[in-house]
C-alpha cells in the first residue's frame, strides 16, 4: 500500500512503515480498551438517566421536572470539553478530587444523559393518548401502564435516535485526552509527536475507531429491526 503526498512541483512519495505500525499495535489495543470502558459506562449511565428523567418529565413531577429541564439545557448547550475541564480542574478547587477515569465517565454521562432524556421523551410523547386510555380501561395502574404499554412503544419509536446517541457518545470519548487519559486520540497524537510517523499513526487511529464503531452500528441496526418488528413489520 502506497500513500503519495504531493508537495510543490515534485511528487514526493512515502511508503508506510509497517514495522512501526505493528509495534504500535499494543498501544492502540490498550487505548481501545480504555475507550471502550469509558464509552460503555458513559452510555449505560446515560441510558439509565434518560429513562428515569424522561418518565419523571412525562408525569410532570413538580420541582424535579424543572430541575431536569434546566440540566438538559445546561448539558446540551455546553461542550463536553468544558464539562470535563470543570470536573477535572474546577472541582479540586472546592475539595472534590476525582480520578481521570471517573471524570471522563461522569462527563460523558452528564452530556449523554440529556441526549438520552430527549430521545426517550420524544418516544414517550409519540405514544397516543388513546393507547393510554385503552390501558387504563383494563385496570392497569400508572406503573403497569408505563411498563407494559408506554415504554415498550416509546422505546421502539426512540431507538433510531438512541442508537445515534450511542455512536455519538462513543466518538465523543476522543477528547478525554484533554484530561490526560491515554485514549486512542491521545496515543496517536503522542506517536506523531515522538516519531513523526503521521500517516501511520493516523491510519491506525481511523482503523481503530472503525473497528469499534462499525460492529456497534451493525448491532444497533439489528436491535432496531428486532424491537421495531412487532409494531412496524419488516
Amino acid at each position: 500500500m502506497m500513500v503519495y503526498i504531493f508537495g510543490g512541483r515534485v511528487g514526493v512519495h512515502m511508503q508506510l512503515n509497517w514495522e512501526f505500525m505493528i509495534e504500535s499495535l499494543p498501544l492502540y489495543g490498550a487505548a481501545m480498551w480504555l475507550t471502550f470502558k469509558l464509552a460503555f459506562w458513559g452510555i449505560l449511565f446515560s441510558l439509565l438517566i434518560g429513562l428515569v428523567f424522561s418518565v419523571i418529565l412525562y408525569y410532570k413531577v413538580k420541582v424535579v421536572s424543572s430541575v431536569i429541564l434546566a440540566y438538559v439545557e445546561l448539558s446540551r448547550n455546553t461542550p463536553l470539553l468544558v464539562q470535563l475541564f470543570f470536573l477535572y480542574y474546577g472541582l479540586p478547587k472546592v475539595g472534590v478530587h476525582l480520578s481521570e477515569t471517573a471524570c471522563a465517565i461522569i462527563g460523558l454521562t452528564f452530556l449523554g444523559g440529556s441526549y438520552m432524556t430527549e430521545a426517550f421523551r420524544s418516544g414517550i410523547e409519540a405514544v397516543g393518548r388513546t393507547q393510554i386510555e385503552s390501558g387504563l380501561s383494563i385496570g392497569l395502574s400508572k406503573v403497569q401502564l408505563a411498563r407494559y404499554v408506554i415504554l415498550p412503544q416509546a422505546f421502539a419509536i426512540s431507538i433510531p435516535s438512541l442508537g445515534a446517541n450511542v455512536i455519538f457518545l462513543l466518538k465523543e470519548t476522543s477528547i478525554v485526552g484533554a484530561i490526560a487519559l491515554m485514549d486512542l486520540m491521545n496515543v496517536a497524537k503522542d506517536l506523531i509527536g515522538m516519531y513523526y510517523k503521521t500517516a501511520e499513526s493516523l491510519l491506525l487511529l481511523v482503523l481503530a475507531y472503525l473497528v469499534m464503531v462499525l460492529p456497534l452500528s451493525l448491532v444497533l441496526s439489528w436491535v432496531e429491526r428486532k424491537v421495531r418488528y412487532a409494531e412496524f413489520g419488516d
Binding site: 388513546t130 393507547q131 386510555e133 385503552s134 390501558g135 387504563l136 380501561s137 383494563i138 385496570g139 392497569l140 395502574s141 403497569q144 407494559y148 404499554v149 415498550p152 412503544q153 421502539a156 412487532a230 409494531e231
Partner: peptide, 30 residues
C-alpha cells in the same frame, strides 16, 4: 374498570403485543 369494560372507536390494541398477549395483559397483571 375490572367490572366495567370499554371498547373504543379505534380498537386501541397494543401494537407491540400479539393478540393473545393483548387479551391476557389485564387478566394476568391486573
Amino acid at each position: 374498570r375490572q367490572h366495567i369494560g370499554m371498547v373504543f372507536q379505534n380498537y386501541e390494541l397494543f401494537p407491540h403485543m400479539t393478540v393473545i398477549e393483548n387479551i391476557l395483559l389485564g387478566p394476568l397483571k391486573v
